[in-house]
Amino acid sequence: MSSEPVFVLPGDHIDPSLIPSHPKKPVRLGPGLRHVPPSDLLPTLAGQLVTDRQKNAIRVETSNGRYIPRVGELVIGTINKSASEVYFVSLSDYTAPALLPQLSFESATKKTRPILAPGALVYARVTLANKHMDAELECVSASTGKADGLGPLVGGMLFTVSVGMARLLMMPKKAQQGKVVVLDELADAGLQFETATGRNGRLWVDSDSTKTIIVVGRAIQETDQKSLGADEQRKLVKKLIKELS
């Protein structure tokens, strides 16, 4: 999108030419920016400043750190415990749990609601993220009443990856844009598996064979930790497939 990446440190001055100025739409501030009244705009993170002129938005892009919930993001949560009306869901370690109302599942009523044991996984959307309140989640679209792929994740196994890797995996064209070819390569090698990625750095993998689950999860984790390029990912997949058979 933007030609030259602009690196900013917290408190840096942002060049006015980088701030989008759409005649009608209001400016939208993404993560990593702070508005200091009356008219100052300061970065709060060290990263690359990205300007989206179509959406009239500006944000600072980083690839590491702890997940902080934001409205609209898709996450994978672990059920901690169940209260009378809500489930307490953990999105990342050592943070306050998010709340998932028991009725915000597809076609859930007081009588028919999914019973989730502690430790169960859910794929959910963040509906409320406010610094003074616990985050809230939903597993159903509030407008249509459809699940749209959200809901309990049955079986499979959860792997932890970095927040930046989770973002790459959630890209629609991850092979072209994100240079993450490891999943495509594993599938081409004949493995059959299902994955779901949450923005909170969680990757869920399911397959009929336990070996496949572990191979896929490990491959992603290794790609993340060693930040492997496309060719190295292919080499890694070849090695793993050889070990598997």
Binding site: L9, G47, Q48, V50, E61, S63, G164, L168, G178
Partner: peptide
Amino acid sequence: FMRSVLEAKAAEGLHWR
């Protein structure tokens, strides 16, 4: 110095951009 090391790190983490 901090700026240069963090810039290098950010470029490495966001190589796909």
